[in-house]
Design a protein around this nucleic acid. Structure first.
Ligand SMILES: [Zn+2]
Ligand SMILES: [Zn+2]
Ligand SMILES: [Zn+2]
Ligand SMILES: [Zn+2]
Lengths: 158, 158
DNA sequence: ATAGTGAATGTTACAGTATAACAAATGAGA
DNA sequence: TCTCATTTGTTATACTGTAACATTCACTAT
């Protein structure tokens, strides 16, 4: 059982919220959440595990006969630009983002056992990072903070 | 001009120190810093820019006629295990590590302009991260903290 | 000496990840 | 209708990484 299989977690709610917010945001921004893009987002939200592009491709094919790698990568690029998903650099994979309404830092806790990824805001970490950049005279464009280990659920099980 | 081209920076010293330390550490640990591994390490230390595996392959070929992808990836795996280099996840590339004598956290500042990567210890950040993990009940195995932006040198130039 | 061992390397083939380039379709406005 | 921009289709290819097995080499136990 993973963190998000637990009875406490209503994943349907996660999905509905995420998809509704995506539609709302795209409407506000005047960008198109086309069927392909929507399907890819839905597939990514099927779980809290990071999903690989070619896994998505296989899953999309039954729905989109013509799906080829560019089909998926274009959808991923769009969703990423809109902040609806994040790329997990250390896994070559993608996860849905809960907090898409505003650009935000991301700290990803990646479980080696259940493969689930939890995104956290971690303001104290971000504050400490800012100080580090100032010391170094470094101007930040983007951050990828990816921590691998065992989530709380898996930690007690093993 | 990059951070490490500046007159203040004696890169020969960087290289000599890194290679000498690598030899010393491998001796102490009873592992073999073979010619191939040494050459790859030397090539990585040719600059402070992150280097890609297939770039290394091209550069190694004149020295190692038989070099094929596994040649490079094996050397990279060894150097990585010994903490002599780090993989930059968000670039699929590698950089030399200055502080190989002890296992350590790594915070990488990656310049989009000059491609140089600076590794920092950032104890305050690591402390804040630890607190974050405790809150989340997460058990850490490894961290990849990669910050993209402009280094101090490039920031003033642009 | 010689046969066995483990570590490193050679070699072939392939799996997995991602993008370039151009063509076709779609849809909204002039 | 025509035009333009956006999206999607299509083909091909580039880039990144590994599996699997053969060979070499140095060291050691017989
Ligand atoms: Zn959920
Ligand atoms: Zn887990
Ligand atoms: Zn240097
Ligand atoms: Zn720079």
């Amino acid at each position: 059982m993973t963190l998000h299989d637990s009875p406490k977690h209503n994943h349907k709610h996660c999905v509905n919220t995420a998809l509704a917010m995506a539609q709302q945001l795209c409407l506000e921004r005047g960008v198109q959440l086309t069927p392909i893009r929507y399907q890819v987002l839905e597939l990514i939200w099927a779980s809290h595990k990071a999903v690989k592009a070619y896994e998505l491709l296989e899953q999309v094919k039954p729905l989109q006969m013509a799906a080829k790698p560019p089909t998926i990568y274009r959808a991923l690029e769009f969703l990423s630009e809109q902040g609806l998903i994040h790329r997990v650099e250390s896994l070559n994979a993608f996860i849905g983002c809960r907090c898409s309404n505003a650009p935000h830092e991301q700290l990803l806790l990646i479980c080696k056992n259940c493969q689930e990824v939890e995104e956290r805001t971690a303001p104290k970490v971000m504050q400490a990072l800012s100080e580090e950049f100032n010391d170094a005279g470094f101007i930040v464009h983007s951050k990828a903070i990816e921590i691998h280990g065992l989530c709380s659920q898996c930690a007690v099980q093993l």
